[in-house]
Simulated scan of single mutants.
Amino acid sequence: MTPSASLEAVCSVTRYPSSCFSSIASQAGAFNTTDPEMFFKLSLSVAINETSKLSEIPSKLKEKTDDAQVKDALTVCETVF
């Protein structure tokens, strides 16, 4: 089985197969392996990278509102992230 076919097989059992495939395929080394454990590790790397981007969202949203309560709520979100 080729690395691409292996990745497709791994992603086919996920809720969003095409998103899984494109996300993992974007990682260095994704097409140098057929090892499901390596695909799992690459998927964790994708999840960590995408989750870290969440912390930027509250501050961007705070810039777009003048509502004090909304800004306070977004400050809580920043703290949680």
Rank of each mutant, 00 (worst) to 15 (best):
M1C: 05
T2L: 08
T2V: 04
T2W: 03
P3T: 03
P3S: 07
S4T: 09
S4H: 11
A5N: 10
A5E: 15
S6G: 12
S6H: 02
S6A: 15
S6T: 02
L7M: 04
L7Q: 03
E8I: 05
E8C: 05
A9N: 13
A9I: 03
A9G: 07
A9E: 14
V10N: 04
C11L: 11
C11Q: 07
C11G: 08
S12W: 05
T14A: 07
T14Q: 06
T14L: 13
R15N: 11
R15M: 09
R15C: 07
Y16H: 07
S18P: 09
S18E: 08
S19L: 15
C20I: 01
C20P: 12
S22I: 08
S22W: 06
S23P: 04
S23R: 05
I24G: 10
I24C: 08
A25F: 02
S26E: 10
S26N: 10
Q27D: 03
Q27R: 15
Q27W: 11
Q27C: 15
A28G: 07
A28R: 05
G29S: 00
A30C: 01
A30S: 03
A30D: 01
F31D: 04
F31V: 00
T33G: 06
D35R: 10
P36V: 00
P36L: 00
M38L: 12
F40E: 07
K41T: 08
K41P: 10
L42E: 02
L42I: 00
L42W: 00
S43Q: 09
S43D: 08
L44P: 01
L44D: 03
S45V: 09
V46F: 01
V46C: 14
A47C: 13
A47I: 08
A47N: 12
I48V: 13
I48R: 08
I48K: 09
N49D: 14
N49Q: 10
E50H: 01
E50T: 02
E50V: 02
S52P: 12
S52I: 10
K53T: 02
K53P: 12
L54K: 05
L54A: 04
L54N: 10
L54P: 10
L54T: 02
L54V: 02
S55M: 02
S55L: 02
S55D: 06
E56C: 13
E56I: 09
E56N: 13
I57E: 01
I57Y: 00
S59V: 02
S59K: 06
K60M: 01
K60T: 11
L61G: 04
L61Q: 06
K62P: 15
K62L: 08
K62F: 11
K62T: 06
E63V: 01
E63P: 02
E63I: 00
K64G: 09
T65F: 03
D67F: 00
D67C: 06
A68N: 05
A68L: 09
Q69P: 11
Q69E: 14
Q69K: 15
Q69S: 14
V70T: 11
K71M: 12
K71P: 15
K71A: 12
K71N: 13
L74Y: 01
L74V: 01
T75L: 13
T75Y: 05
T75W: 04
C77R: 12
C77T: 09
C77V: 14
C77Q: 13
E78M: 12
T79R: 12
T79K: 13
V80P: 09
V80T: 06
V80D: 04
V80Y: 06
F81I: 12
F81T: 14
